[in-house]
Nucleic acid binder design. Structure first.
Lengths: 204, 204
DNA sequence: AGCAATCTTGCGCGGCAGGCAAATTTGCGC
DNA sequence: GCGCAAATTTGCCTGCCGCGCAAGATTGCT
């Protein structure tokens, strides 16, 4: 069995090249000044080939997020089946953050900041997260007991992903300190861990 | 000051007509068999006017959700400033559900079920929720104390909206029992209320 | 080398977002 | 009522996009 044949490696390279070109050009020129054709040209493929990989330039821009979230699914599967669900999610999120922190170079941060100005992209960012939401919920189903497992696993998946998304957005906008701290604070706001001093929520 | 001049009322009526036409036609014919022009025709306006109201047919389809979420913002503002944030959110969500439960006629449910088959629409559903997310976060800012208020209010807003969205989706797919029950269960999963028996989370 | 499976590319069609300006409708003071 | 200014609708138009299709190029296996 092949780890990765030439075919697969070429496809992955093309996909990545398209993603990077899309993000870079959108940051440099502004989203609406960049055509799909320009992205394809920058990645040395035809416009038609772009469509074979992504259904829109926005999807191409957020491909990196998709990859990272799929990696998080693996990190979840690697954990013992009898852990508390939220513990599993938190650990996976923190491990992922540490893993990819190096790849989040200043260039990446700057590009994401510029791209952020386009309000329409918010929806597509969220869309990337929603794509894996069902897979994540399916993974959590096995780790829940009690009634309403279907609903509750979906709620857990959705809230966890929403929390990570917001933490990332906040860090992109105001990166004071490590991303990991921000993710921990965000996760703690949803599920205060015993031992971590929970934040005061509300006057009084 | 006018409650609503003729101008405003006409605009609201047109917007609503376009929304209803979009949802109905998408449910009947399938999203990709419905053109913007067809929606505009059904609402007795020109295709160009459609674009004055919505930037895509998907946005038109989920306009109803947008309206309901804005109503929820009002319900939040109406509550005392010294309540616990999550309590405020829960009360508003439940009040909203009760308010609009009558309007969620069987027709609406059937339409939403048919429309749900189009996987691409998921992203647009989420987009509708994300649009109000920042407004909701801003509203919560005043109700939080302690450090990292900006981050934490956004996390609360995002998790609350994600929970409501998932509960609604689950109910659309499997409406066993009142929507209100499902919303309560979903809210309880993320913030177990003292007094409500929390669900067993994990084996053991 | 040869063959089948897969991927890339060019072409073309229906559709869509949105700028622009003319025509219509509404609001308001008189 | 009347007429004017502001707002809205509409038609026209342009560039762009998603995707079906089929021909050509590349890869994998024997």
């Amino acid at each position: 069995m092949h780890e990765a044949g030439l075919r697969e490696r070429k496809k992955a390279a093309t996909r990545l090249a398209l993603h990077e070109a899309a993000l870079r050009l959108a940051a440099e020129e502004g989203l609406d000044r960049v055509t799909v054709e320009a992205i394809a040209d920058a990645a040395d493929v035809s416009r038609r080939t772009f469509s074979n990989y992504f259904s829109s330039k926005e999807e191409a821009i957020f491909y990196g997020d998709t990859v990272r979230l799929r990696r998080m699914l693996e990190l979840i599967r690697d954990q013992p089946a009898d852990e508390q669900p939220w513990t599993v999610l938190s650990r996976a999120a923190e491990a992922l953050t540490i893993e990819v922190y190096g790849e989040l170079a200043p260039t990446w941060l700057a590009q994401r900041r510029r791209v952020r100005r386009h309000p329409g992209l918010l929806a597509h960012h969220v869309a990337a997260y929603t794509t894996v939401e069902r897979e994540l919920a399916a993974e959590l189903t096995h780790r829940l007991t009690g009634p309403e497992v279907a609903l509750r696993s979906r709620v857990l998946a959705a809230t966890c992903l929403a929390t990570l998304r917001v933490a990332l957005q906040q860090w992109i906008e105001h990166p004071d300190g490590p991303l990991l701290d921000m993710i921990r604070t965000a996760l703690a706001e949803v599920r205060p861990t015993p031992g971590t001093p929970g934040p005061a929520t509300g006057p009084g």
